[in-house]
Simulated assay, not measured.
Amino acid sequence: MGDPWLSIIGMPDDSADALPPASRAALAEAEVIFGGPRHLERASAGTRGRAWPVPFSVEPVLAERGKRVAMLVSGDPFWFGAGGSIVGALDPSEWRSLPAPSTFSLVANALGWRLEEVTCHGLHAAPLAQLRAALRPKGRMICLLRDGDAPAALARFLCEQGAGTAQMHVAERLGGSDARLRAVQADGYDLTDVQAPVAVGVDLPDGIGLPRAPGLPDDSFASDGQITKAPVRALTLSALAPRQGDLLWDIGAGSGSVSVEFCLAGGRAIAFEQHAARVENITRNIADFGLNARMQAAHGRAPEV
């Protein structure tokens, strides 16, 4: 393992006293400690503490290369955590990770849910529409949210998707002495004073979610009528045979419906379209299906663009 200068430490929500010995030793040896204000306070970082910049960046950590540095993150650094944001810029000999139980594990244990049967979502910066493809009858989700206002927004989203009867388990500051767990139905959401860090476990009702087979109904998409109709689209997707991570160039995309379904199957897509109004529809469909990270629209004529 060598002698890495950077220790990425999973931090529980109560205090540094709850850390295992190796994590406490790394904190004690650190010349510089990066973390959120809550973590820095609970680790008694004092003058060694450096708060994360807004917007988030790992550049300040990289600038301290050569010193003993500790990064404090919530739970498991590589489960929707900041660990994955920095190691690509480092040699494996430069860092070590000292994880704690993830927030997903804490929520699942608080609710008695089998974690392997739950879908997990990090939504600190991602749109709630990203959840659309994960909705399924009687399914369960755990969502990490950005702040105390986000659970109310999640409740509104669930209602818009026909899941107003979903049970929401709002988990605040799990792992610490001020942890709180409250349950509320999405269409009756009335919780106030929700404290971050917050995660929500969602028990979904029956009869919701997108079909898993290709060929979504045509009215699922914003369109001016220029759309590959559902039966032809199903055959097209079957022939394209998308695999996880595959990239599709959709030239003359129309509404972008083929690209959307390609991405819902795990791929990525660039939708080329020369008509500005249709590009607007493609952009709307990207947002409605929560595919901003997988799909983009390119306005212009082929092959110039």
Rank of each mutant, 00 (worst) to 15 (best):
S177A: 15
Q226S: 08
L181F: 03
D190C: 15
R243E: 10
P214E: 10
A213W: 01
V232D: 09
A230Y: 05
G225Q: 08
D224E: 02
A230Q: 10
K229C: 01
G175L: 04
A234M: 02
V170W: 02
L181G: 02
V202F: 04
G215Q: 01
R212M: 05
L240D: 14
A153M: 07
T228A: 02
Y189V: 03
R173C: 10
P242W: 03
G225D: 09
D190H: 15
L174T: 00
H169S: 13
F221E: 00
A153I: 04
L240I: 13
M168A: 06
G162K: 07
L235V: 13
T165W: 04
Y189P: 02
L158V: 12
D206P: 03
A171F: 06
T228N: 05
R233L: 09
T165K: 15
A153V: 03
A241Y: 03
L210P: 08
G209V: 07
R243N: 14
A183C: 15
L235F: 14
D203F: 02
A155Y: 00
F221K: 00
A234V: 06
L235E: 12
L181Q: 13
T228R: 00
K229E: 08
P231D: 05
K229Y: 01
V194C: 10
Q161N: 06
D224K: 00
A155G: 01
V232E: 04
V232T: 11
V202C: 08
R173T: 05
A213T: 12
A171V: 09
W249M: 11
V200C: 09
D190Q: 15
R180M: 06
Q167C: 15
L248E: 04
R243K: 14
L181I: 15
L210R: 08
D203A: 15
S238V: 02
R173E: 05
D219S: 12
V194D: 08
L240W: 12
D203P: 08
D187P: 11
A153F: 11
V200G: 05
A234S: 14
G209P: 02
V200R: 09
S223A: 07
L174F: 02
R173L: 04
R156F: 04
